[in-house]
Design a protein around this nucleic acid. Structure first.
Lengths: 151, 151
DNA sequence: CTAAATTCGTTCGTACACATACAATCTGCC
DNA sequence: GGCAGATTGTATGTGTACGAACGAATTTAG
């Protein structure tokens, strides 16, 4: 059974949970910092991290279905749907049904989308550098290696 | 806010942006994995990471204002508002105006909140361990050290 | 002691993130 | 050829996350 209510923080060992040392809390804060850097530096198109990721992968693939794009960018179909809708609204991508499989929606960049990506990509690299700026070169390499093992 | 962007459309070399090597993409995926582990393991109260963080800090502090709790848990006031509303709905915390400063809302755990935290805290530790399971002991220490430098 | 600045919490709007449920379509297998 | 099961995308609901704008209360500066 759980312990009794106490007036002051209980000395129970099990309750000694230090939030600021937990990996989840640190990941959340690191992500917050990265998101802030991203918004400040991505440039005049004000793409979000997910929108930029989607543009980058469509750029790589040429033509890609919405579902496959979701797998490539680590977004579930419901999330992908919203990201695609916003990129369509802004004219950065075009969408057409796949004649070979009528369930599928094929996506490609428009000229505006290609230009926006070309203009933003250097900022993307800058953002990664700035996010890792508190670490020196050796630490950066170690951190990225460990983070890759963790995903 | 919109700083000087790149002046010219960059040469093709600049477009060589490998999404899966960017720290922001890796952080997002690590967070996704952690969130999935958290939801699967936190136990019958089905607290979210932010709800659990709020309970943990109120537990530490005893009585705390909503705004200060936001600083302790790294949530902005608008986010805090929603988290608090859901914890109030579920009867885990109680809220009363501060008689000394009528802008403030003072929060404390209810008996149910204390019980839910006591029951969940061991799972919280398990979740951190499972999130870091792909790393060995030395790597875990290195990763947490580097992540702490990054937030 | 007033005027200005700051703090506290709320509301609104936008954007992920995912569970669940669903309809349309395609594939594999008999 | 036909059907069970998988895949693709949509819709809805809940929960973070934060900027902007706001009103009320308090603090500070002059």
């Amino acid at each position: 059974m759980p312990q009794q209510a106490a007036e002051k923080p209980a000395p129970d060992e099990e309750l000694d949970y230090r939030l600021e040392e937990q990996v989840g809390f640190l990941l959340r804060r690191a992500q917050q910092r990265h998101t802030a850097i991203f918004a400040a530096r991505i440039g005049r198109h004000q793409l979000t991290p997910t929108q930029f990721a989607a543009l980058a992968k469509i750029h790589d693939e040429g033509i890609v279905s919405q579902n496959k794009l979701g797998r490539l960018t680590a977004m579930d179909p419901a999330t992908m749907q919203g990201v695609i809708a916003r990129l369509l609204d802004r004219g950065f991508i075009a969408r057409a049904p796949d004649p070979k499989d009528r369930r599928r929606a094929l996506l490609r960049l428009t000229a505006e989308g290609r230009a926006a990506f070309a203009e933003s990509a250097p900022n993307g690299k800058l953002i990664s550098r700035e996010t890792l700026a508190p670490l020196d070169a050796r630490e950066r390499a170690a951190f990225l290696r460990l983070l890759t093992k963790l995903v």
